[in-house]
């Protein structure tokens, strides 16, 4: 038996919106301590990793580990039934064939229920090693979104360069070349801060179109954390207050 109730259901709605363009069918792992999922996009370039702790739920019960295979596209359709102020409850029996999703609005007394059919997914699970990232950049999520969006209109690829003084996003395309450079900024206004933790500088190139997809999660968190290592995929991380973390991994582009 699994049951989890989230008071701020909008968070779940935003999570589904933030991953639905990247992954299609996903195994959701339920454990007594929380909910997690890991899934790659069809081209094996990007990976979504979500971890939600039971502590963030108003009510949480999972007697055993369970795997719930869902179509994210269909889950997104169901989530559209939810009002932004709804509480969301997820329920599944042992050996379940469907996931029951309940939306409740205590103010308007409206309740919506949907039984989403579960599917069997044979997905590849990757072992992601613990990595000591040599550059970690914490940046306002709205600002990072805007930078990626605007640069994408100029080039398909961005080069991210870090050093102890700044992080630089540079593009080169038919239109020309240029860069956005952000220095370490720990101003009093927290939302303006850009925090650089660089032990070794990194220079890597990435497909901007994926970053734009990841940035849908910017509504979940005021800050985006970019974790870089010269020999590893980029991690774009969004902390979800009191509940967990949504991470995206993106493989770099390498010069031929």
């Amino acid at each position: 038996m699994f049951e989890a109730k989230l008071t701020e259901g909008l968070i779940l709605k935003k999570i589904v919106e933030s991953i639905k363009d990247i992954v299609t069918d996903v195994n959701i792992d339920i454990s007594p301590s929380g909910i997690s999922l890991q899934a790659m996009d069809s081209s094996h370039v990007a990976l979504v990793s979500l971890n939600l702790s039971m502590d963030g739920f108003e009510h949480y019960r999972a007697d055993t580990n369970m795997v719930l295979g869902v179509s994210i596209a269909n889950l997104a359709k169901v989530m559209k039934l939810a009002d932004n102020n709804d509480q969301i409850t997820l329920q599944a029996d042992q050996e379940a064939t469907h996931l029951k999703i309940i939306f409740e609005n205590p103010k308007t007394e409206r309740t919506t229920e949907f039984n989403l059919n579960l599917i069997t997914i044979d997905s590849e699970h990757l072992a992601i090693p613990e990595t000591e990232y040599s550059s970690v950049v914490t940046i306002n999520s709205g600002e990072f979104s805007k930078i990626c969006k605007e640069l994408f209109s100029l080039s398909e690829t961005v080069q991210i360069t870090t050093n102890t003084d700044y992080v630089q996003f540079s593009v080169e395309g038919e239109v020309g070349s240029g860069q956005v450079r952000l220095g370490h900024n720990d101003s009093e206004k927290k939302e303006d801060q850009t925090i650089l933790e660089v032990s070794e500088s990194v220079q890597q190139q990435f497909a901007i179109r994926y970053l734009n997809m990841f940035n849908k999660a910017s509504t979940l968190s005021s800050f985006t954390r970019l974790c870089l290592h010269q020999e590893q995929p980029l991690v774009v991380e969004f902390k979800i207050d009191n509940l967990g973390v949504l991470k995206y991994f993106l493989a770099p582009k390498i010069s031929d």
Partner: peptide, 13 residues
Amino acid sequence: MQQKALTSFFSSA
């Protein structure tokens, strides 16, 4: 420029 795959960095669990 060549797009690398994640599977060239991470192995199957």
